[in-house]
């Protein structure tokens, strides 16, 4: 079925309608009243916002640090194992020496 009004006619008709920019009386007062009523942010919310904002840079720094350290870990892998072992076992060693 052929439409009673073509898309072109419809668009023409819609364009011919004047833009309605009238504003209800004292509408700005309503907005300002809402703004005054709105509760301000408490300290916990502000702290939470700050933490969220800090999360992204911290993550970035962590990734960069990991990328920089990654080759060093592989280069000194064997030495690190020994160092770690002696560090972890140091108190045991000390206790053993003292007991003798």
């Amino acid at each position: 079925m052929k439409p009673l009004i073509s898309p072109e006619e419809f668009v023409k008709l819609a364009r011919s309608l004047p833009r309605e920019e009238r504003v209800p009386y004292a509408f700005e007062k309503r907005i300002m009243a809402h703004l005054r009523e709105a509760p301000g942010m408490d300290a916990v919310t502000l702290w939470a916002h700050a933490l969220w904002r800090a999360a992204a840079p911290c993550l970035g720094i962590m990734i960069i640090a990991a990328a920089v350290c990654w080759p060093l870990i592989f280069q000194q892998g064997a030495d690190n194992d020994v160092d770690l072992e002696s560090a972890v076992l140091a108190p045991t060693q000390l206790a053993f020496d003292l007991s003798r």
Binding site: R19, R22, V23, F27, E28, I31, M32, L35, R36
Partner: peptide, 18 residues
């Protein structure tokens, strides 16, 4: 100065309503 915001509302509300 929250009250200063009213001037922005008055200035742009006709466009926004349109």
């Amino acid at each position: 100065d929250t009250e200063a915001f009213e001037a922005l509302v008055v200035r742009y509300q006709p466009k926004i309503f349109g």
